[in-house]
Simulated scan of single mutants.
Amino acid sequence: MLLALLVAAALAPGACTVWLLRRRGWGIAVLAGAGVTLALPFVLISSLIVFPPLAILAAVGCAVSALNAYNDGRIVMGAGWMAFAGVCTWCAGWPI
């Protein structure tokens, strides 16, 4: 359920951009929506670098989610959460 919410939150700005720009042509609207959607990870990582307490909080949340995934037997999902926890700790300036 959390993964579905994350996907919806990541795709919502791009979908809104396409909807608002559809009068200018679908080609331009789709390109703008794709640009907004693809820029979101870079905005997230730059906000984690600029504000390290947010990165630490995200790392702790990811580590807890990874432990829950490992406990449920979902090894790949746990590894993904731990990879993102590693990125968050790197953004906070902590050595991994």
Rank of each mutant, 00 (worst) to 15 (best):
M1V: 11
L2A: 15
L2H: 07
A4C: 14
A4H: 00
A4D: 03
L5Y: 06
V7Y: 08
A8Y: 03
A9T: 04
A10G: 05
A10Y: 07
L11P: 05
L11N: 06
A12Y: 08
G14V: 02
A15C: 09
A15Q: 03
A15W: 09
T17W: 02
V18P: 02
W19G: 03
W19I: 01
L20H: 13
L20E: 13
L21K: 06
L21A: 14
R22F: 10
R22D: 08
R22T: 14
R23P: 05
R24G: 15
W26F: 12
W26L: 15
W26I: 15
I28F: 07
V30Y: 01
V30Q: 02
L31F: 15
L31R: 08
A32D: 04
A32F: 13
A32G: 04
A32S: 12
G33C: 05
G33T: 02
G33A: 09
V36L: 09
V36F: 10
V36A: 07
T37H: 03
A39R: 03
F42Q: 06
V43E: 04
L44I: 15
L44S: 09
I45C: 02
I45Q: 06
I45W: 09
S46D: 09
S46F: 04
S47K: 05
S47Y: 08
S47A: 15
S47C: 13
L48Y: 08
I49K: 09
V50C: 07
F51V: 12
P52I: 00
P52Y: 02
P53M: 00
P53D: 04
P53G: 01
L54S: 13
L54N: 12
I56D: 13
L57H: 11
A58I: 13
A59D: 04
A59P: 04
V60A: 11
G61V: 08
G61C: 01
C62K: 02
V64M: 09
A66V: 08
A66P: 00
N68R: 13
N68I: 11
N68G: 11
Y70H: 14
N71H: 14
D72K: 15
G73I: 01
I75C: 07
I75Y: 06
I75E: 13
I75L: 10
V76K: 14
M77I: 12
M77E: 14
G78T: 04
A79W: 01
A79G: 07
A79L: 14
A79P: 00
A79M: 13
G80T: 09
W81R: 05
M82G: 02
M82R: 00
A83G: 06
F84E: 06
A85W: 00
V87W: 00
V87Q: 02
C88Y: 02
T89F: 14
T89N: 00
T89C: 07
W90K: 11
C91H: 05
A92R: 04
A92G: 11
G93N: 05
G93H: 06
G93Q: 05
G93S: 02
W94Y: 14
P95A: 00
P95K: 00
P95G: 01
I96S: 10
